[in-house]
C-alpha cells in the first residue's frame, strides 16, 4: 500500500524533476523530505510497480519518429501467444487488453517513421491476423497529470 507521502511524491513529480548534480535532494526539499528518503521511496514504488517508469519521457515525433495506435481482434484461445508475438517487437511501447471485438490495443513508436508500417506488416505475417492502424489525425489535448 502507498501512503500519503507516496501520493504527494507521485502528484508532484510527474514532471519537473530537476536536472542538476543532486536532483533527488532538490526535489526532496520542496516535498519536505530528505534525499535519502525520496530515493528510497521512488525505488520502492518502482519495485512494487506503483510507478511504471521514472526518468525522461521522450517524444518520438520530435526525434523525427512516429507513433501509431493499433488494434487487433485476437481469438481468446490465442491471446497469450499472439500478445507474446506482438510484444516481442521493441517498437511496441505499450499494450492493453480491452473488452471489445478489437481486444488488443497497442502503440507502436519508432524514431524511424518507416518502421511503423513495416512492424504492422511483420505482426500480420507472424500472427495471420489483421492489424487495424489508428494514426492520429488531430490531437486536441494531452493531460500530464494523474491524481494519486
Amino acid at each position: 500500500m502507498i501512503d500519503m507521502t507516496d501520493r504527494r511524491i507521485i502528484n508532484a513529480l510527474q514532471g519537473g524533476f530537476p536536472v542538476c548534480e543532486h536532483p533527488f535532494a532538490e526535489a526532496a526539499k520542496s516535498l519536505g523530505l530528505d534525499e535519502e528518503e525520496l530515493l528510497e521511496r521512488i525505488t520502492k514504488l518502482r519495485e512494487t510497480g506503483v510507478l511504471t517508469r521514472f526518468g525522461p519521457m521522450y517524444n518520438a515525433e520530435a526525434m523525427g519518429g512516429a507513433f501509431c495506435l493499433c488494434a487487433m481482434a485476437v481469438p481468446q484461445a490465442r491471446i497469450d501467444a499472439v500478445v507474446d508475438q506482438v510484444n516481442a517487437h521493441a517498437e511496441v511501447a505499450h499494450n492493453y487488453e480491452r473488452a471489445h471485438e478489437l481486444n488488443v490495443w497497442f502503440v507502436l513508436g519508432s524514431d524511424d517513421p518507416g518502421r511503423i508500417d513495416a512492424v504492422i506488416d511483420e505482426i500480420e505475417d507472424e500472427t495471420g491476423l489483421k492489424v487495424y492502424a489508428f494514426p492520429k489525425e488531430h490531437e486536441f489535448f494531452i493531460g500530464l497529470k494523474v491524481d494519486a
Binding site: 502507498i2 511524491i9 507521485i10 513529480l13 510527474q14 514532471g15 519537473g16 524533476f17 536536472v19 542538476c20 521512488i42 514504488l45 512494487t48 510497480g49 506503483v50 510507478l51 511504471t52 517508469r53 521514472f54 526518468g55 525522461p56 519521457m57 521522450y58 517524444n59 520530435a62 526525434m63 500530464l144 494523474v146 494519486a148
Partner: peptide, 28 residues
C-alpha cells in the same frame, strides 16, 4: 549530459522528466 538533457527538453524531444504512475496501482 545535463546541458543536452536541458536542450532536448527545450526542443520538445523530452516531454518531461519524472515518474509515470500505474493507474491500477493507484486504484484508478
Amino acid at each position: 549530459v545535463m546541458a543536452r538533457l536541458e536542450r532536448m527538453m527545450a526542443e520538445g524531444v523530452i516531454r518531461r522528466i519524472g515518474v509515470v504512475p500505474n493507474h491500477y496501482a493507484l486504484g484508478l
